[in-house]
């Protein structure tokens, strides 16, 4: 797949996840993390997986990106079974994975450079264009440690985007940023997505972030991770935060909350360790759902 990639970039891909099971350990120590997960990442759509922390969301990305092999089930990209990691499926990680020994420019240029797809002026122009899109053109010669958290995430976004992946995975990429930076990053990201219309998979434990970004919302259960429900989010695009006041948004949110709350109650009843936190988190979110968010 890597070989027949064209210089002009790849088409958005479609990814089918079919009865995915992932267990760790053997015999009596077996822990089922993913239990029969099936969903489709539709072409040029932004799919958001929402579930409580620790439910196995990152495992899904690790399997889909090819870092880990599924115990059973299939993952197909445009009809072909995936084997190992590759530049057609790129991950933007929770923690920054920018190479600390490379400047912003070198980090972004890394992918096309190692695959010898672009060089010289062509590469420079492509990198600078993307850096301008995310407002980092003046920081091209800075090292990652000299950038703020938000700038690091933006660099990481464009480092993935320059490779025109068929699918992009976002593993809670804005986690750990302060609220202000986080909402800015959400706007940046939604712009970039609306501009490029690639196939995106975004993982989050924040329902509000999920609905704001999503075309399709996949609600996951806790331990083991299953698909609870897939909802279509037909909010108008281009989106900005004003959408969060619309009745449509609130309806989706209410329905999703009910599902998540039900899930929380279930795992609480079955005595799951993190169920109490889970329950508290989603009950709390229900209370203030009618209130407008402060930055809207």
């Amino acid at each position: 797949m890597i070989n027949n990639m064209s210089n002009t970039g790849m088409q958005a891909g479609e990814m089918v996840v079919d009865n995915l099971v992932k267990t760790y350990g053997t015999d009596i120590l077996t822990k089922v993390v993913l239990d029969d997960c099936s969903f489709v990442l539709e072409r040029s759509k932004l799919t958001v997986l929402v579930g409580p922390s620790g439910c196995g969301k990152s495992t899904i990305i690790n399997v889909l990106a090819g870092y880990e092999k599924p115990t059973s089930g299939r993952v197909l990209l445009d009809g072909e079974q995936i084997s190992g990691p590759g530049p057609d499926r790129l991950v933007v990680f929770q923690e920054t994975a920018l190479f600390p020994w490379m400047t912003t420019f070198e980090n972004v240029a890394y992918g096309p450079e190692v695959r010898k797809e672009m060089k010289g002026k062509e590469l420079r122009d492509a990198v600078m264009h993307l850096l301008e899109l995310v407002g980092l053109e003046d920081f091209r010669d800075k090292y990652p440690t000299q950038l703020s958290g938000g700038m690091q995430r933006r660099t990481e976004l464009v480092r993935a985007m320059i490779n025109h992946p068929k699918v992009m995975f976002m593993d809670e990429p804005f986690r750990g940023l302060d609220a202000m930076t986080r909402s800015l990053m959400q706007e940046y990201y939604v712009r970039l997505f609306e501009e490029h219309r690639g196939t995106n998979l975004f993982i989050t434990s924040e329902l509000e972030e999920g609905i704001f970004l999503a075309d399709r919302l996949v609600i996951l259960t806790n331990q083991p991770c299953r698909v609870k429900k897939i909802m279509n989010v037909d909010l108008p695009r281009p989106r900005d935060f004003s959408v969060m006041g619309s009745s449509e948004y609130l309806n989706i949110k209410r329905e999703a909350l009910e599902l998540l709350h039900e899930e929380a109650m279930k795992s609480f009843a079955s005595g799951a360790v993190n169920a109490a936190d889970f329950l508290e988190a989603y009950s709390h979110m229900g209370e203030d759902q009618a209130k407008p968010r402060s930055h809207v």
Binding site: I2, A65, Y67, G84, P85, G86, P87, R89, L90, V91, F93, E95, A97, F99, W101, M102, Y110, G111, V114, R115, R159, N163
Partner: peptide, 29 residues
């Protein structure tokens, strides 16, 4: 060297040798 750098390099299409020269050597310096 954190595992995430190897993953990032592998994802971006770096070969074993490129990982050696662009990740292992500078990361261990």
């Amino acid at each position: 060297i954190d595992e995430c750098y190897f993953r990032a390099a592998a994802s971006l299409g770096a070969s074993e040798k490129q990982i050696f020269s662009k990740v292992i050597v500078p990361g261990a310096l």
